[in-house]
Structure formats: C-alpha cells, structure tokens
C-alpha cells in the first residue's frame, strides 16, 4: 500500500537543502548564491510545515515559524541584492572569486 509519511517529506526537504547547499558552494555568481540560499530556506519551510501537520496539528507551531522564516528570507534577499549592487559599483564584477578585499 502506497502511503506518504513524514519520512517522505523529510527526505524531500533534505534533497532540496542539498541542492541549495551545492549551489552555494559551487556557484561563481553572487546572485546565484543568493538564489540557492532561498532554496535552502524553502527546504526548511517544507520540514516545518510537515512537522506542523504530523506532530503538532493543533498548536500550529511549524506554520507560524515558517511564516517568520518567509519574512526574514524576503528581508535577507533585499539586503543581499543591495550589498551585491553596492559591491558591483566598486569592483564592476559579481564573481565571488573577485571579492577578496578581506584576504591578506
């Protein structure tokens, strides 16, 4: 009998998180790294909502928490893009390998 249990959601979320992490580690473009961080945050949201349904369906803890995660992620992408635009203006590049100002 085919059923969908909590384990399915946790593994889907782990897979999505791994894809995002892979992008964060291996991408050259700063905007691409920002996008991959969004994928990782979304993977966490899937986990939170799945736990909310299967473990605390009355308390709504996971759903409220994922709402806050969505808000913070939106703020993060705004600030991140602003920082990337500011760096681009100084260095005329978005390649993360060029951002070595703090290296000595």
């Amino acid at each position: 009998m085919l059923t969908i249990s909590l384990t399915h959601y946790v593994i889907l979320s782990a897979l999505l998180f791994s894809i995002g992490l892979f992008g964060v580690i291996t991408k050259r473009n700063a905007v691409a790294v920002l996008i991959c961080i969004e994928i990782m945050l979304n993977a966490v949201n899937i986990n939170l909502v799945a736990f909310s349904k299967y473990i605390t369906p009355i308390d709504f803890t996971g759903q409220i928490f994922s709402l806050f995660v969505i808000t913070v992620a939106a703020a993060e992408v705004g600030i991140g893009l602003a920082i990337i635009i500011a760096i681009y203006r100084n260095k005329l590049s978005v390649n993360l390998d060029d951002f070595d100002l703090l290296k000595w």
Partner: peptide, 13 residues
C-alpha cells in the same frame, strides 16, 4: 562541493 553535499544528504536521509 559535490562530495560534501552528497555526504550531508546521505547523513540526513
């Protein structure tokens, strides 16, 4: 990076 991520996913799964 691929190796590290594969390890992370295997551990989580």
């Amino acid at each position: 990076g691929g190796g590290v991520v594969a390890l992370v996913f295997a551990l989580c799964a």
